[in-house]
Design a protein around this nucleic acid. Structure first.
Lengths: 188, 188
DNA sequence: CCTACCGATCGGTAGG
DNA sequence: CCTACCGATCGGTAGG
């Protein structure tokens, strides 16, 4: 849906709270109430924006990574597809999950609950892939899958920060260095 | 100044954009225009809030770390004091630099410039301490100080995320694990 | 520091 | 989908 795609892109720039119905209507060349009629409340619009982000994330990051063989190759594919996702032109401000996770961290409600469940899924997926890599004997036996997910995720947060705030031209190679260090330390 | 301390705490929760003069006045039991008279504009208030954060950061994190001996001990002290900072009761929503860095990433202006210079200083300080650790021969010769700062900082971002959004009770020990992995890999 | 006010914008509604 | 409107709140000002 065109409305949700525009809203997703806008939210990645200004956050969920920074999105206003009036401004979004202007971007879409619609009247405010015409746009509002599609949603029952602003919160519902924001929830659908988050859900749109989840759907796209599955298509752009998760599904392609699952094409790669289990173990290290799959984890490498996951990381590379995440980097592409973070630079997607349809996300003007980068990964919406990265940008909204600080915004919603201290704001209880349905939006926070939605983001939290998405993030728990994501962390669980990384940990499960690390567990598979251990089973395949790509990773050593003592590897802690949850700690692996923690460190994997910290690299994505850092990439968002260095590419978007610092605008470090080396952000990508730094992220890849970090990731390769993690893989090296995890290897059997 | 009491106004700036209340504003700092509030901003850590709701972000710089989420701060409103009317709401802040209510928290301080003042009239809106009485509070406004202390600042010439909302942006100036926000800038002073950020500056207040920088001042407190120096006192709480940087200065105490410089008491520790150069090299690995100083870097360990820096990390531990950062963890204490992130849990400070006067920062209701955690580290303001972590919470505002996503908010300001895509919003050009004086606020972004102020945060950016603070963050460049911070990253430069970490890199310089890593360079000193290399000189002291605590770290191996090939260590890249900028990459070290990148990874150090990514751990602080991850701690903010896991403790504030995920509310992972193990956030602290996970962060310390990450940090010790980094130190181990950097050792001479 | 205050009261009283400004125009603009907010989310949302009535009625079509 | 629209026009026209609601009360509340926004940043900011006048005048004291």
């Amino acid at each position: 849906m065109a409305i949700l795609d525009t809203a997703l892109s806008e939210c990645s720039r200004v956050g969920l709270g920074g999105l206003s119905i009036g401004n979004l209507a202007r971007l879409l060349d619609m009247s405010k109430s015409g746009l509002f009629a599609h949603f029952d409340s602003k919160e519902n619009l924001q929830l659908q924006v988050l859900q749109n982000g989840r759907d796209r994330f599955v298509v752009r990051v998760l599904a392609p990574a699952l094409q790669a063989p289990r173990g290290i190759p799959r984890l490498e594919a996951l990381f590379e597809h995440w980097l592409e996702w973070a630079d997607s032109p349809f996300l003007q401000g980068g990964c919406i999950f990265a940008s909204t996770s600080t915004e919603l961290a201290a704001q209880p409600g349905a939006l926070r609950d939605c983001l939290l469940s998405a993030q728990r899924d994501w962390l669980g997926t990384i940990a499960e892939m690390a567990r598979a890599a251990r089973r395949e004997e790509h990773f050593h036996e003592e590897l802690d899958p949850e700690q692996f997910a923690w460190e994997f995720h910290s690299m994505t947060l850092a990439y968002h920060y260095f590419s978007r705030l610092i605008r470090d031209p080396e952000a990508q190679s730094r992220a890849r260095n970090s990731f390769q260090n993690l893989i090296r330390a995890s290897r059997a």
